[in-house]
């Protein structure tokens, strides 16, 4: 696949054992959701060996692995997994900017997890229950929503513990919630191929967040949820500064040794 090219317009030749490929808007939807999962998976994997406690190291790696599984399933509906993950240029990635944000301190990561996993659980639930969404994506959604519930629970528990904790942990959690907030505007931008009631999903998301933040003695930030200078956003292939560095680290091995196996 040429770097930067749009999803394939016609089905690729498949052997009888491979599932049929998605095309058009359905492929775009799979790619967008797959990119969200892959990039957040990579960010969480950066914590491996660096988390504040061994249990947390294992937890973040497990969540990362779940997301990687989602990404692989979605990419395999569109084309070759490795080519899609390792051979696309920055502008060809359609993930929202929230998931590419650097890990920051632990509270920043938890804030990103809270915003994303609450939204993802709501989205997978809606996709799984909507007959208008492509069947292979619905099947994945029905599977993934059960795992995502554990991700949401993990972020939820940490938000309570940090927010309603010491002065230091509360300050850091509040900062994380504020810093990540300006990247949440894309979470409920309509995705081609997934005809869902996005404003209703966003309302559910806000209610859930207000509940957990109130219990954590915090409040939802009041500022804009998108930066004026982002000019569109991740869904259009426009990314923030740190994304290029993330791709360089994620892709360099595959690009240096094409087709390598072990």
């Amino acid at each position: 696949m040429t770097a930067g090219s749009p999803p394939p317009a016609a089905p690729a030749a498949t052997s009888p054992s491979e599932p049929a490929r998605l095309v058009g808007e359905d492929a775009t939807a799979a790619l967008m959701l797959g990119d969200d999962a892959l990039i957040l998976s990579h960010r969480l994997a950066e914590w491996t060996g660096h988390a504040p406690a061994l249990e947390e190291d294992v937890a973040l790696a497990n969540i990362s692995l779940d997301l990687l599984g989602q990404a692989r399933t979605l990419f395999s509906l569109v084309g070759n997994e490795d080519e899609l993950a390792f051979l696309r240029e920055e502008r060809a990635f359609h993930n929202i900017q929230l998931v590419e944000q650097p890990n920051g301190d632990f509270a920043h990561t938890i804030a990103r997890q809270l915003y994303f996993s609450v939204a993802q659980e709501i989205r997978w639930t809606a996709v799984a229950g909507s007959p208008d969404c492509p069947t292979p994506i619905r099947e994945l959604a029905a599977k993934a929503v059960k795992e995502t519930a554990y991700h949401r629970d993990h972020a939820w528990e940490w938000t309570l513990r940090l927010g309603d904790g010491t002065d230091e942990s509360r300050t850091r959690m509040r900062r994380g919630i504020e810093v990540m907030w300006r990247h949440t505007g894309e979470l409920f931008v309509p995705i081609p191929g997934l005809p869902l009631d996005e404003p209703a999903l966003r309302a559910q998301w806000l209610t859930a967040l207000e509940t957990v933040l109130a219990a954590a003695t915090l409040t939802l930030p009041e500022g804009p949820d998108a930066d004026a200078w982002t000019a569109g956003g991740g869904r259009q292939g426009v990314h923030t500064e740190s994304f290029g560095f993330l791709l360089a680290e994620m892709q360099h091995l595959h690009r240096s040794h094409p087709g390598a196996t072990w």
């Binding site: 249990e55 947390e56 294992v58 937890a59 790696a61 497990n62 969540i63 692995l65 779940d66 059960k146 795992e147 554990y150 629970d153 993990h154």
Partner: peptide, 27 residues
């Protein structure tokens, strides 16, 4: 911890015998 040695397990501790153990978490 809700996440343990594999994705499908949680880590628990017995408060009687003090041994940690894995629990296949409900999915």
């Amino acid at each position: 911890s809700r996440f343990s040695s594999t994705a499908c397990k949680a880590l628990r501790r017995c408060d009687t015998c003090r041994e940690p153990f894995d629990h296949v978490k409900e999915l």
